[in-house]
Design a protein around this nucleic acid. Structure first.
Lengths: 228, 228
DNA sequence: CGGAATCTTGAGGCCCGTCAATAACGGTGG
DNA sequence: CCACCGTTATTGACGGGCCTCAAGATTCCG
């Protein structure tokens, strides 16, 4: 394997992650000693459903998708882990298995803390526990939003929202969809075919412009927001 | 207002709620002094979207539904708060408004702790913060499950699961649906008409027996689990 | 007992999922 | 640089599940 372009150390993880950010230097140093890190190539799994779930996983650099598999074999995307995000499930309950999958979307560096170390850490560092509570609260709000949208809004509306969210923050006029259509589809609770159709439909209606198959330009934010 | 059948005191709240349960007597007493309680009649709102969100709300006795309202006016049920459950959102972020509604389904007693008191409590009582993290983690797992089911499984399958979950725990053969069809519908992301149709369909297929419009008997657990 | 809310049942239609075939893309090696 | 092949995306035809609208039946509760 090629040498990493950047070296990602335990300190990097601690600096990157929001739940550690406002802690004292001393606390951060302690945490750094508890962390192990690993490199994954694009497409590898961080964990699969059924795996023993025994550590908190932090994305130090890269991107991974977390999804569940339903009884009939359909994927449902739960979230995209970006640099600095973590997957909590693992560190919270004792003796439960993962019920979801995490697969990297690019080469990705990951840090881990074992459940027991993490639980000890929360006992000893209340600020960290409070940070954790806040992070989980945000996650809950986001999931509630996702559930509501998926059941109450049309695919066209969900897709429009997704485009607006994805393009927000980038002040580029033209932006690139960061995911394959299949992944966008499972994120929005639909199929790649429908995504494809709705994108051309939005383009025909003049709300977006299609530059290439995954590059787009927002033409009419207001109308996109009003769909459905 | 009539005198309450049972007196629900601050101590009751503290005893009832899982996040307080394994704390020391001393800690519990402290918490009890921070709690205020209120009685609500059936159908009243504990809070509405847009209200300032400034306290943790605990259901000491009764039942309430928490739901969001989508842009096009549809309700999406997020969860049912039972005795001992709490709504977290409020106590976690600073200066955000509620984005959901909570409405009682029967006469209900509620306890509250202000956000500032609760945040202080977490700082001073790490065990409580850890309890909170665990409770939120469970809630996340449940929401992820709900999102996945709602997008990947048919209404019939979701309803079958709901019936199994609702009847589980009660060893009664015949059980009563605790919610109106409209509420079941918004919980499962569908409409009352569809719920009605699917229930008669399940009965025709011999998997359940319809005793009255809201009393049912499970006849074939295995087939109910296999739907879809 | 009476009126309001809830539930049931039917008819009709549309959104979107499925299946399938073609096209475009992207990386690899010659 | 181009030819090649697997992956991904597009487009069409079709069907079905579920939503909508509406009317009638039933239940609930004062």
């Amino acid at each position: 394997m090629a040498k990493l372009a950047h070296d990602h150390t335990a300190e990097d993880c601690v600096e990157l992650v929001t739940i550690f950010q406002n802690l004292s230097k001393k606390d951060k140093d302690t945490i750094a000693t508890l962390v192990t890190h690993h490199h994954y190539k694009s497409g590898e799994y961080l964990f699969s459903a059924g795996d023993a779930s025994d550590s908190l996983i932090i994305v130090a650099h890269g991107q991974a998708k977390v999804f569940q598999m339903s009884a009939n074999g359909k994927e449902q995307m739960l979230r995209i882990l970006q640099t600095g995000d973590f997957d909590g499930e693992a560190a919270l309950f004792s003796n439960t298995d993962h019920n979801s999958f995490a697969q990297t979307l690019m080469d990705t560096d990951v840090c881990q803390i074992s459940r027991s170390d993490f639980q000890k850490l929360m006992q000893e560092t209340p600020e960290m526990a409070v940070n954790m509570v806040n992070a989980l609260g945000r996650r809950i709000a986001q999931l509630e939003q996702q559930t509501t949208e998926v059941t109450t809004a049309s695919v066209e509306s969900r897709l429009a929202n997704y485009l607006l969210e994805t393009s927000a923050g980038l002040d580029e006029e033209i932006f690139t969809l960061p995911l394959k259509k299949k992944d966008i589809a499972t994120y929005l609770g639909t199929t790649p075919e429908t995504i494809s159709r709705k994108l051309t439909s939005l383009a025909k209606q003049g709300m977006i412009e299609k530059i290439s198959n995954n590059k787009f330009k927002i033409l009419d934010t207001d109308r996109l927001m009003m769909i459905d």
